[in-house]
Nucleic acid binder design. Sequence first.
DNA 1: GCAAATCAGTTGTTGCGTCAACCATTGCGG
DNA 2: CCGCAATGGTTGACGCAACAACTGATTTGC
Lengths: 172, 172
Amino acid sequence: MSDTRWLSTEESAAWVRLVALAELLPGALDAQLLRDAGLTHFEYGVLMALGEAPSRTMRMTELASRTNATLPRLSHVARRLEERGLIERFPCPTDRRATNATVTPAGLDLLASAAPGHVETVRQNVLDALTPEQLEQLYSIAGAVLTRLDPDERLTATSCQFSEGPAAARMG
Amino acid sequence: MSDTRWLSTEESAAWVRLVALAELLPGALDAQLLRDAGLTHFEYGVLMALGEAPSRTMRMTELASRTNATLPRLSHVARRLEERGLIERFPCPTDRRATNATVTPAGLDLLASAAPGHVETVRQNVLDALTPEQLEQLYSIAGAVLTRLDPDERLTATSCQFSEGPAAARMG
DNA sequence: GCAAATCAGTTGTTGCGTCAACCATTGCGG
DNA sequence: CCGCAATGGTTGACGCAACAACTGATTTGC
């Protein structure tokens, strides 16, 4: 019955802060991107993933996996983005069940115009608050937690959609 | 105009993982609580906040602030919880604009039955993946970020709603 | 004291995400 | 080949959150 291992004071304190962080961060990202570019953070991630893909094209299923979305969610979002002219969808020639999505030039333009403000938000709200040591600690800690939360490591796969800025900027 | 400071490799890597964490954590918490207790994590937080309050009662506005909810959101959630008999609302005697909310015994029972499973989820998904040093680092890092994200420290105020388990368990 | 501004809370509308159901295609076993 | 399960994707219904508009109560300013 009550053999529950309750949280110690330290555990509770850290947990409270982590939960607060997880609650506030998505809203802050959405708010800035929506205000300045009319995109949710998820939509931004979708466009970014497509923009970084070879030939700017990706299968819906793979896109969903990379962006941590369910397929229905991605399908709805893709329809909206397509209606806005930011992406296009067409049937995959080799597998007629599948659908491929591509960013349009308009989508890339919007992405390019949105990126600086987004990066600035990320700096102001998170990165600039941390020392280099803390940045590395964060990398380790988040990695350890993701091992439990996302065992398949879909989100942290190579060249993740949430990377910021043009690919060239990260390849130093 | 392209004076944007793009993210370094280290910054990008840590950021990607943090975003993945923030995306996955709420869903994991909701999934377990919904399955085992029929509560969202937010509803759990509301009940917890009320349960820890003196006389298990709180003003709607204060409750909204503690749980990081807008007042409309809390109002909707409170109506549902009241319909389920988990809380009660009644006008505040001293300020006739205000409304007080109280957890019912049924609400406390549900909370008590939900807590062990929730704590177990928190351990499995997060705490048990971290060393004691990492726990302290997480506390510092999240604190630093929250200074930017939540300057008023509404969420991290004393006896926060997302603390786990009976209050006695945390007070040693 | 009374009008205007503010505060506390509720309600209605809109938009997004989840779930379940659905269709089409592909792969596989017999 | 044929039947059947599994895969890829879309659609529709429903629930929840954000935003705006509204009611009623309280404070402020003159």
